[in-house]
């Protein structure tokens, strides 16, 4: 465990350096001056930090949703939350086309509504709940298609770039995002023992002293706020929340004392690397990072599904 922790720390440092250096032009972070320094510290670093915080938040939310629903294949995006957030964002864009801020608020409200609706169906039990999530995702997609059809042409580009995940800027300030990451990790650690007990099922957890109803409410609130912040900051980026906690469980075991911080860091690294690839592969143009995470995430999801059965 200790060795794996050291390896993870070295990996973070390496990823940070590579992500800083790579781009349309390769810049040595230890020897950058003039315009290179501006590119490095004013453009790339904030973007990296956004990617790190958003990736970590998404992975944490994924880990929480999985315990909340008793299903390791649950994730806000699989449950239709990306769809509801997009509907919220595009609705905002429709009414106040010139304001990025209104779009973000719309996304936040949309994400919140999506999660609340999913949780209403959570009472049906994990299996049916996932099914409800799939149907809800289809509903939000239909609603989104309707809104996009009605959206004026100049709004379409912005809507699409947001829907595919956009880390180039964030309407939420970077220090706030990093603070949210830290607070989320801390909250998760405080709940880690109760979360572990919940892995045994609600009855066992209650019998072992967990106030399950209260814990579920807290978790839901945490997962919703964290998802909403991530979606508001960077648009819809799927599958980080699914894949990362899974990988971390494989590496560090199932107990949350290890899984949560590892997911927060691992999710950050994955999104940082994905974003570096997205802005490097076809430079000077950029690939949407949400598209990349989905291209990686969908096969991994299917692999996990097959492996589980």
């Amino acid at each position: 465990m200790m060795l794996r922790g050291v390896i993870l720390c070295l990996l973070i440092a390496l990823c940070l350096l590579v992500a800083l250096a790579a781009g349309e032009q390769w810049i040595n972070p230890f020897d950058a001056g003039g315009q290179d320094a501006v590119i490095l510290w004013d453009l790339r670093l904030p973007r990296l930090l956004i990617a790190f915080a958003v990736g970590g938040l998404l992975a944490l939310a994924g880990a929480w949703f999985q315990v909340l629903l008793g299903n390791p294949l649950a994730e806000p995006y699989v449950l239709g939350v990306a769809g509801s957030a997009s509907v919220g964002a595009v609705t905002g864009l429709m009414f106040v086309p010139e304001s990025a801020w209104v779009m973000s608020v719309g996304a936040f409200i949309g994400a919140w509504i999506g999660i609340t609706v999913v949780m209403i169906f959570a009472r049906l039990g994990p299996g049916r709940m996932l099914l409800a999530g799939v149907v809800l995702a289809a509903f939000w997609a239909a609603l989104l298609a309707l809104l996009l059809a009605l959206l004026p042409e100049q709004g379409l580009y912005r809507a699409f770039s947001w829907m595919m995940g956009d880390l180039s800027h964030s309407d939420i300030p970077v220090p706030f995002l990093l603070a949210a990451w830290g607070v989320a990790v801390l909250c998760g650690m405080m709940l880690s023992r109760s979360l572990d007990l919940l892995l045994l099922g609600e009855r066992h957890a209650e019998a072992l002293g967990v106030e399950v109803k209260q814990l579920r409410q807290r978790l839901l609130l945490l997962a919703s706020v964290v998802t909403a912040i991530a979606v508001t900051a960077a648009g819809t980026i799927g599958f980080v929340g699914l894949v990362v906690p899974h990988l971390m469980r494989m590496l560090f075991g199932s107990l949350h004392k290890a899984v949560l911080p590892a997911s927060a860091i691992g999710g950050g690294l994955l999104l940082m690397l994905a974003d570096t690839a997205a802005r490097t592969v076809i430079a000077p143009s950029e690939l949407p990072v949400g598209v990349l995470t989905a291209i990686i995430g969908v096969p991994v999801f299917l692999f996990l599904l097959v492996r589980r059965t």
Binding site: P72, L199, G201, R203, A207, R249, G253, S254
Partner: peptide, 24 residues
């Protein structure tokens, strides 16, 4: 702390090991 209950077998989805189960 007063009552221990043993009922249905707990779910296995999350990959807990026997040792971890006992730790819980």
């Amino acid at each position: 702390s007063q009552i221990a209950w043993q009922g249905e077998l707990p779910p296995t989805e999350f990959g807990l090991t026997v040792h971890q189960r006992l730790q819980l």
